[in-house]
Simulated scan of single mutants.
Amino acid sequence: MVGTKATAASPVTLSAVEDRHAGGVFLSGRSHAGVQATADLVDRFTAAAGTQTPLWVATDQEGGEVQVLHGPGFDAMPYGIRQADLSDDQLRASAGRWGRGLAAAGVNVDLAPIADIVTSKATRLDNPPIGAFGRQYGYNESTVADKAGAFAEGMRDAGILPTFKHFPGLGHVSANTDTTADVVDTVVTTNGPDIDVYRPLTQAGPSAVMVSSAIYDRIDGSTPAVFSSKVVDVLRNQVGFSGVLFSDDLSQAVAVSAWSPADRAVKAISAGVDVLLVAEDASVFPAMYDAVLARALRDPQFAAQVDAAAARVLAAKADMP
């Protein structure tokens, strides 16, 4: 899934779709142009995709400071912590309205809602990626399950695939993986609420899950989660999720900057991730693509992982809400 600014069609991303058949496009940045202008932009990519497998078009439409698409046809979405003030039915209805705006613009995947459980209200500002931005739905498993679940149901009602993030949780870290290397979580365990919350969320209907690029000391302290088969195995085997796994951004995030783009791509797929998100810097996509292809041609086990990932993506596209 390759990024383009939400205000313009990147030639690199158009080439990724047309020439190398990338299966998804991510709209990044901020746009205030409204639904029709966004639909016109998306049409350029769907035309480039031609008659191949339907294109996933995704964005970050969470609410608050994390809302890419604005303007006529897109409602202003409140922060996650304010969405949580609504009843479950009210939130589902609101998310359905927000989702219908996305659908009218040609977007069919929302990289939301947030399933991270922030440690506490008192310490929320010490959690830069989630709590400091008010992205969280709450401070315990049941609240997050209810509210993130209601948001996801509303998106499904509108025909949008929701994506729960950031497995296995960014609610306890003290730095942001987008801007900081070696972000380490020392709280999340395989039998704790941060992982358990994914069970009811993913069992409720079609969804995807995004894997974090933080390091989880109590699961696999040796590497970022997005490169860890141990972390992915928890989601597959313990939570029982069989759907599509997205990486967090592998193009510009400082948390993965110690590895070359080629190595990031191979390591993520080797760990069991299905879709590589190349969100902020499309220029690294060719190196990632070439590395995955070269490895698959010489390594049958890796090729089987690529095939399995592709099969999950195709199944998810066929089973869109």
Rank of each mutant, 00 (worst) to 15 (best):
P286A: 06
S213G: 09
D307N: 07
S283V: 01
K121H: 11
W56G: 06
T189C: 00
N127I: 05
E141I: 08
V209H: 10
V35L: 14
A22C: 04
G169I: 07
F74N: 08
I219S: 07
Q52N: 14
V244D: 06
F45M: 04
H172M: 01
A150W: 05
V12C: 00
V231W: 01
N191Y: 07
P72C: 09
F167M: 05
M155T: 09
A294E: 10
V234W: 12
S207V: 00
L293D: 12
A316Y: 06
A9E: 05
T13F: 11
K147S: 13
Y139D: 03
A95N: 08
T119R: 01
G154A: 11
W259N: 06
L235Q: 10
D40K: 10
L111M: 09
I81E: 12
D281A: 12
L102D: 06
V35E: 12
K147I: 08
A311T: 15
S247F: 10
Y289S: 05
W259Y: 15
G154L: 10
D126H: 12
I219N: 04
A115D: 12
T190N: 10
D248K: 05
D220V: 07
A104R: 14
A132E: 06
L201G: 09
A268N: 00
I195G: 02
G64H: 02
D194V: 00
Q136S: 15
P128F: 09
A262M: 01
L27G: 01
K121S: 15
A287T: 12
T59I: 05
K317E: 11
A47V: 13
Y79R: 13
F45P: 02
G34V: 08
D182Q: 06
F167S: 08
D43F: 04
A262G: 14
A47T: 12
T123L: 12
T143N: 03
A33S: 09
G138I: 06
S213Y: 09
S251W: 10
K165A: 02
A84F: 03
L41P: 02
E153W: 06
G101R: 02
F74L: 04
Q61E: 15
G101H: 00
I81M: 13
A145K: 06
M77N: 13
D299S: 07
A48F: 02
F246T: 00
G149R: 05
H166A: 10
G243S: 03
V144T: 06
R218H: 09
A214T: 09
F45I: 02
N108K: 07
L170W: 04
L297S: 11
P113C: 08
V188I: 15
A291K: 11
D249L: 13
S87L: 04
S222G: 15
V25A: 09
Y289V: 03
V209K: 03
S94N: 13
V184G: 04
E65N: 15
L170F: 13
G131Y: 09
P200C: 10
R156E: 11
L245C: 05
F167P: 09
T119V: 13
S87M: 03
R312T: 03
A37C: 05
S142E: 14
V234K: 13
M320K: 06
L55G: 08
F133N: 12
M77L: 15
F167L: 05
A105R: 02
D182S: 11
A115S: 10
T53H: 13
L86S: 10
I117F: 14
T46S: 10
A115N: 05
L297R: 15
D319G: 09
S251P: 08
K230Y: 03
R312G: 02
